[in-house]
Design a binder for these strands. Structure first.
Lengths: 231, 231
DNA sequence: TCGCCTCAAAGATATGACGTATTCAAGTGA
DNA sequence: TCACTTGAATACGTCATATCTTTGAGGCGA
C-alpha cells in the first residue's frame, strides 16, 4: 500500500529525511532545487509535495518556497508518517506515543470485540492464540511475531469499530519495530502468552470485562517494558 | 488548515462526493472526465488525485482510470476524511466510531495529564472549567461549545502524548457536529458540567485515577446519549 | 522615517507532446 | 473448440514550456 511511480520514490527519500530531522523544521526548500537534487521533473516534485502537504508536513507558499512545518502539526496518525518516524531518530518518542495509544485503545477494543465479534472472528482468535503459544514454546520469534500481529489486528478489527480496525497496521508496525530493534525479550514471556489465551477465551465466550482486563495487562506490560528499555 | 488553490477546491467537491457515496466505492473516474466536469486543467486534477491517493481513497492505474477504493481502506484518521464523513451520509457511523474512540482515549489522556500537565496547563484548565460552568448556566450554547472544545483539547494536549494531542481537533469536530445537528440537550446537563470541574480539579492536584474516572463518566455518558439519539 | 510603488522571484496553472503499462480482442495454430 | 500469441487502443505517467498570480523586498519620494 504505497504510492507508486516517481513521486512515490521521491517521497521515500523526502519522508525519512524529514522524519529524521535531516531536513529540519522550518527549513525552506525550492521546487527547482528538489528537481535537480533528485533528477526529476517539476510535475513529480509538485505531486510529491502535494502529498506531503496533505500530511501537513510542509506548506508551499509563493515567493517563499516549500516550508517544513513544525512536527506538532504533522498528521501523526498517517501510516506513512508513522513508518518514517519509526525508522528514524524519532523512534523512541514514536514508540512511546504508540505504546500509550495501545494502552488506551486495545483494552477498549477487546471489550467491544467480546460483544461484536463474529463466529469466524472468535474461531480465528482461538486458533491464533494456540499458534502463538506453540511458536512461543519453540522460541520461534519470527513466526511468533506474525501471529502476535495477526492476533492484535484481529481483536481491533473484531471490535466492529472502523477506527480501531485501522490501528491494526500501526500496532503491527510497533510490534515489528520492537522485535527488529531487540526491544523485547528473546523468549516471549509465558505470562504474556497466557494472557493472550485469556483474551481469546474471554472474547470467545463474550466476557467483555475480562477481555478488557487481560488485554490491559498485556499492553501496560509492554509499555512498561518499553519505557524500561528506552530509559 | 486547508489545501489551497484549485486542487483544494476540487478536493472540496470530490471529498464530500466520495464520503457521501455519491461516487460509490469501485467507481472508476477518468482524469479527462474530471477536467471537463470541473473545468480545470490536468495539472490540477492530477494533484488533487494524488492527495486522495495519499489518503488511500482512490488508486490510479494505467489504462483503467482512477478507482475509488473500498471505504475500509480509507485513512479514517485523516482530519479531512473525518470532516467529509461527518458532513455526509456517513455521519452516524462516523460519530459512533469517534464516540468509542473518545471513550478509549480521553480517560487515558486525563490520567496522563494529571501527571504531565504544566502549571500553565493546569491554570488554563481550571479557568476553562469555570467559563464552562458560567456559559452552561447562561444556556449560551455557542460559547459553551467553544469552551468545551478547548477543555477537551487541552486535556488531550496536556497528556504529553503527541498522538492524543492530535485528536483535539477531531474531538472538536465531534462536539461541533453533535451541537450543529442537535444531538445534544439544549441545555448542558448540570451533572456533566460538574464532572468537567471534577476532571480539572483532579488534574490540577495530580489525582490521576480520579481524573480518569471522571473523564470516563463524561465520555461514556456522551456515547450513550449519542447511541440513544441515533437509534 | 514612513509609506507607496515597482520589480522580480517562485509557485500555480495550462497545455502539448511523448512514453509506457495494461487491457482487450483479433488472429493463429493445434 | 480452446488456448496462446500478438498487436493496437487507451488512459495514466512524465517531461518541457509558457503564462499567470501572488508576494516579498528594495528603491524612491515626500
Amino acid at each position: 500500500m504505497e504510492i507508486q511511480g516517481l513521486p512515490g520514490r521521491l517521497l521515500d527519500e523526502l519522508g525519512p529525511a524529514l522524519a529524521s530531522g535531516e531536513i529540519p523544521e522550518g527549513a525552506v526548500l525550492r521546487g527547482e532545487e528538489l528537481e535537480e537534487r533528485f533528477g526529476v521533473s517539476r510535475t513529480v516534485v509538485r505531486e510529491a509535495v502535494r502529498i506531503l502537504e496533505g500530511m501537513r508536513m510542509v506548506a508551499s507558499r509563493r515567493r517563499v518556497g516549500i516550508t517544513v512545518l513544525p512536527k506538532s502539526l504533522w498528521d501523526v496518525f498517517d501510516p506513512m508518517v508513522i513508518r518514517w518516524r519509526l525508522a528514524g531518530s524519532d523512534r523512541p518518542a514514536q514508540l512511546r506515543s504508540l505504546g500509550s495509544l495501545r494502552v488506551a485503545v486495545e483494552p477498549a477494543a477487546a471489550a467491544l470485540a467480546a460483544v461484536h465479534a463474529t463466529d469466524d472472528d472468535r474461531r480465528e482468535l482461538s486458533s491464533l492464540a494456540v499458534e502463538l503459544t506453540v511458536a512461543a514454546r519453540d522460541a520461534d520469534l519470527t513466526t511468533f511475531l506474525g501471529y502476535d500481529i495477526a492476533f492484535h489486528a484481529l481483536v481491533l478489527r473484531a471490535s466492529g469499530n472502523e477506527m480501531f480496525a485501522h490501528l491494526g497496521d500501526t500496532v503491527g508496525a510497533v510490534l515489528t519495530g520492537r522485535t527488529e530493534y531487540h526491544l523485547m525479550p528473546h523468549q516471549p514471556e509465558p505470562y504474556a502468552i497466557r494472557l493472550h489465551r485469556e483474551v481469546a477465551d474471554a472474547i470467545c465466550s463474550g466476557r467483555s470485562d475480562e477481555a478488557e482486563q487481560a488485554m490491559r495487562t498485556i499492553v501496560t506490560g509492554a509499555l512498561e517494558e518499553l519505557n524500561q528499555q528506552l530509559s
